[in-house]
């Protein structure tokens, strides 16, 4: 078992009323799964993803990650936990425009205090694996959307996470680029056993996964 959510609620107070963002969510994810979260806008997909990624808190319920109780952990341990085990991929890539492809890949390693020579090796390895060695000195703005997202995925993977959280990773891409990214996810999942949870609007993309979770108004249906 990688993670487990039990009776998770999240709400905001608006004009004396509780607006529920997540309502009684129960979810178990085993290692090696590939899950797609679907649902209309405002149904709480991204919120759920952020809660799983520990970027966001929740108001009620329990969350275990690798048998640590996330809801009782202090902020510092929580961030250590996600730094260690989780990689994020975003719809708008979120690469640092001031850094080259190579430097963008290197950044998470810096924060993990990995030595220079080892960083170099890991980055070179990743560039090689994603076939972007020739682009290592380019800046994100010099790349196509698909290439940027490729870098985004590479960056998420470089810390060797157990779990990849992808928030509409193909939302800004055309169909051919989408296809490539989804193939990549599938390959990572199948060949390397990386657990993947993605939020998507696309039925087609959702089918790459092994399981689909549908949300409506913060509730699992």
């Amino acid at each position: 078992m990688l993670l487990q959510l039990r009776n998770v609620f999240k709400w905001v107070q608006q004009g004396g009323q509780r607006i529920f963002l997540l309502k009684d969510i129960n979810l178990e994810v085993a290692e090696g799964e590939f899950i797609s979260i679907m649902g209309p806008s405002g149904s709480g997909k991204s919120t759920l993803l952020n809660v799983i990624g520990m970027l966001d808190t929740f108001d009620e319920g329990e969350y275990d990650f690798l048998s640590e109780s996330v809801h009782t952990l202090k902020e510092k341990y929580r961030s250590n936990l996600y730094k260690e085990y989780i990689g994020f991929v975003f719809q708008s890539y979120h690469l640092l425009d001031d850094l080259t492809v190579e430097e963008n890949l290197e950044m998470p390693l810096l924060y993990k205090k990995i030595k220079g020579s080892e960083r170099k090796a890991l980055v070179a390895d990743m560039l090689d694996r994603f076939n972007i060695v020739g682009k290592k000195d380019l800046f994100p703005t010099q790349l196509s959307g698909g290439q940027q997202q490729l870098v985004g995925v590479a960056r998420a993977l470089i810390g060797k996470p157990k779990l990849i959280l992808a928030d509409e990773p193909t939302g800004n891409l055309n169909s051919q680029q989408s296809e490539e990214i989804m193939q990549l996810f599938k390959k990572l999942n199948e060949e390397e056993g990386v657990t993947i949870i993605q939020v998507t609007h696309s039925e087609k993309n959702a089918e790459y996964g092994s399981r689909i979770i549908n949300l409506l108004d913060g509730r699992k249906i």
Binding site: L55, S79, K83, F88, H94, L95, L96, D98, M107, P108, Y111, K112, R155, G159
Partner: peptide
């Protein structure tokens, strides 16, 4: 802000 967000998500600690 966006840059900071990315760095945080990539594992940067506040002190860093």
């Amino acid at each position: 802000a966006k840059e900071t967000g990315i760095r945080k998500v990539s594992g940067a600690h506040k002190s860093q």
